[in-house]
């Protein structure tokens, strides 16, 4: 009985013998191979999804390491060169009393990327089983991850704009460091990773429970 109630709450298309087009949303019979409306390939589940998610996730995580070890911003003023890593910059800003800015940078460059890694990893791991968060919770998490990913680029943009604007030769020069490139890559990789996740997988676990 309890199961039935749960089943009612989650009736998947696959269970109903249907397959939806991910592009235009039209529903087809299970056997259909291509969408009759838009011609996209139809697949009830993207079998390679998790694999790609993991691959991009790893790439993103690897890129995130040099992004934190190498300097993000190389500023030289009057012959004095200063190199700042992401965390170093945050600490310095904090020391100078710019807590607001320090917080924004910290959230955008540290909290969000790391949160994303964890979130995506969790989603990928939990795709096959219903653990901890059930039902729509995971769907929400996935949507948040996808939405927030782009905001991590805020740091990269700041560096890009500064490097383009502040080129006063001897007086002041700003160069992007290695970290800027690797951080941008890291963000891009995690976004692709999130994109590759097939959220339909989240529901299969319930289906398995029901059978």
């Amino acid at each position: 009985m309890e199961n039935a109630r749960r089943t009612q709450s989650v009736l998947t298309a696959r269970r109903a013998g249907l397959v939806g087009c991910t592009t235009c949303g039209r529903v087809h019979a299970r056997q259909a191979v291509t969408c009759r409306r838009c011609g996209s390939r139809l697949a009830s589940r993207d079998t390679g999804s998790l694999q790609r998610v993991w691959a991009w996730l790893f790439a993103g995580m690897i890129a995130y390491i040099p992004a934190n070890l190498y300097p993000m911003l190389v500023t030289s003023t009057f012959g004095k060169t200063q190199q700042n890593t992401i965390v170093g910059g945050v600490i310095e800003l904090f020391d100078h009393g710019s807590w607001g800015v320090a917080l924004i940078v910290f959230v955008a460059s540290v909290l969000i990327p790391i949160g994303k890694f964890i979130a995506i990893a969790y989603l990928a791991v939990s795709a096959r089983s219903a653990v901890v968060i059930r039902g729509h919770g995971r769907q929400h998490l996935y949507e948040v991850v996808e939405f927030i990913g782009r905001w991590s680029m805020i740091d990269v943009f700041v560096v890009a704009i500064l490097a383009a604007l502040v080129q006063l030769d001897f007086v002041a020069t700003v160069h992007p460091g290695i970290a800027a490139a690797s951080f941008a890559l890291s963000v891009a990789f995690t976004m692709i990773s999130a994109q590759n996740f097939d959220p339909r997988l989240l529901w299969d676990a319930y289906e398995a429970d029901d059978t």
Binding site: G48, Q51, A55, W56, L57, F58, A59, I62, L185
Partner: peptide, 15 residues
Amino acid sequence: LSFVWLVPVLALVIS
């Protein structure tokens, strides 16, 4: 095995 795995491998190698 997806070809996508080349990406993290490449990233790892470069790093």
